[in-house]
Amino acid sequence: MPADTILETKNLSMRFGGLTAVKAFSAAIPRAGIVGLIGPNGAGKTTCFNMITGFYRPSEGQVLFHGRDITGTPPHRVCNSGIARTFQNIRLFGNETVLQNVMIGCHLRQKTGWWQAVLSMPSSLREQRAVAATSRELLAVVGLEDLAGENANSLPYGAQRRLEIARALATQPSFLLLDEPAAGMNPNETQDLMRFIRDIRTRFNLTILLIEHDMKVVMGICEHIWVLDYGETIAAGPPEAIKSDPKVIKAYLGEEAIPNA
């Protein structure tokens, strides 16, 4: 593993019964990079996310984070080690306020426990205030500071996506996985999103892996791309190379679309 690799997957495979959802996915992700995972629907992208974040135990292969084997570690420990994620079908804590959603993300790094809160110990009260302050700052980063008191369910779609990112940042990750962050956004919002992703990378020293269907986003910000089709990695490389790869075009558009094939 090269020194500047933050996360590496080795021959990661996932089988459900007879179906192989992902087959031998190997990738080395450089520190501080923004990289992408693309492929047609059902190609196994989210399955890869679930294997990396501990929601699925891979049938085969390994996940190395900072050189340490984290294969099969439960999700909350994976998160504790510094990997945070968002979900394709947004999963907020709907009955809670926007601020509470972010505070829940902060809980992981909290030092005082429940009984200190019950006893109203000064250390606990101080930390509680600090957590609220940090959460408000994070809301400001994603531009939701004015909606802190609203119910998470009542936010418009785009704001919910941003809240999910703020919540993930609250766990203080070094590696962030975004599952279709641009879904449902118009071109203007997409432009903002790209700027935003680059911005948080520098601000929080992040490495970002994203799944995205919007090729403008992928080609615009990703430095390296892996392409999955039916669970197999059919191509990997910088955006320019991916754009002209016949296998990728074939996977996306079908056989007949390739000129001079």
Binding site: E96, I104, H107
Partner: peptide, 23 residues
């Protein structure tokens, strides 16, 4: 009212998301 309480409510609302938040 504490953040522990928020975590309880998070589990009630969406267990999977709570796990992903390191709970």
């Amino acid at each position: 009212a504490s953040n522990s309480g928020n975590v309880f409510k998070a589990i009630r609302d969406d267990e999977t998301a709570a796990k992903a938040m390191g709970v």
